[in-house]
Amino acid sequence: MTLSPLLIIMIGVIGLLGAGFYGLLVSRNLIKIVVALQVLVKAALVGLIAAGNYNGQINLAQSLALTVIIADTIVAVMGIALGVQIRRHMGTLDVRELSKLKG
């Protein structure tokens, strides 16, 4: 079986998703968690572009990807803003320190 470009890209997307989720699960630092989220979004972006390339609508796919980047930037900014507030009021960025809510 030869590796077609599409297959390679799909493996890449899955790899990025895996790396992102791994990062989400093991990171203890709030900033690193936001970075892991960014890695996840990059997987989705690669997927969108690959899909557009595959079905010949690359222009549409690029505009979709741009929109996703905008939406995702807003989320990242808000995540970091929350991180700033957490650092300010609790003096730490470690998620293990903020586990008051359980059950």
């Binding site: 996840l40 997987a43 989705a44 972006l45 997927g47 899909a51 557009g52 796919a61 979709l64």
Partner: peptide, 14 residues
């Protein structure tokens, strides 16, 4: 919501 975008990419491609 990232997973939703991946789903959208699959549908868009297929």
């Amino acid at each position: 919501s990232v997973l939703v975008v991946v789903g959208i990419a699959i549908i868009f491609g297929a």
